[in-house]
Amino acid sequence: MSSSEFAVETIRLTKDFDSLRAVNEIDLTIEKSEIFGLLGPNGAGKTTTIRLLSGMLIPTFGKAKVLGMDSVEKSLQIREKTGLLTETPSIYDRLSVRENLTFFGRIYGVKSEDIQKNIKKLLKIFDLEERIDSKAGTLSKGMKQKVAIARTLIHDPELIFLDEPTASLAPESAKVVRDLILNLAKESNKTFFIATHNLYEAEILCDRVAIINRGNILAVGKPKELKEMMKGETYTIIRFQEWNNEVENFLEINNYKISNLVQEERKIQIKLKDIEKETPPLIKKLIENNYNIVEVFHERPSLEKIYLELVERETNGGVR
């Protein structure tokens, strides 16, 4: 794949603020039409990475190509062709929704006749048509965020950076925003770069995810691939109808490794080497020995577990 086919390509991208290294030698490639998530805790370097990619900051060293253009030499052109939803909505409370969107349309160089067309189209998508002449300051947080996303899209950008798109939103508003992003991604074939600390959001929205902490990329891959990294961490949980103290001995005699036991919940957690092969005989043995099973299920490592594990490992071990 040639570099121009990538929406984003970085080589050892680094940013220092005085003695603080905010982004450390990041190597990333993001394909066009991909929804890419940058997942990390607060202060991990997500916003700085977005600002570097959108040509707002100059790297200390390393380089980034965005839509085939150098982020330093062609920063203005990059900003013209990309949209950035900043962490705060960046909309003007004293102006109406229409005035806000018209202003952003103009500074992004959209033709006057297209601005009003785009506003109508976007407000229809965001279900804000009735509030077009309302002052932005009178809108709810969720509505403001929708207007902010609309202003990010007013010039029909090829690549959209979203910095914490649902942080500070109530769960129902966050869901609306997430659904909107998914619909837009499906319908428009645009590339999305989403910085978030919300694991659930990353998992349901993103094709691929990179985990970042203290400026270092710890892992990159599809959420499924990241889970595969910790395949060995899958546990089998058996819940019984009534608790029998002998079950513990029974399992140990049969060489099953118990990793957790919650008597009050009548639950036992064991680790199987091969789930596919070992689960049926285990159930059979338990039934044969009159242990009344209510359910058996496997707890696979969640993205959250992988994320926490990697971040903790990096924070304690220190990559740098």
Partner: peptide, 14 residues
């Protein structure tokens, strides 16, 4: 103060 400056800085305005 109203945190709208970033929207301007992120735009193609020089």
């Amino acid at each position: 103060e109203r945190k709208t400056m970033e929207g301007i800085i992120a735009s193609p305005l020089s």
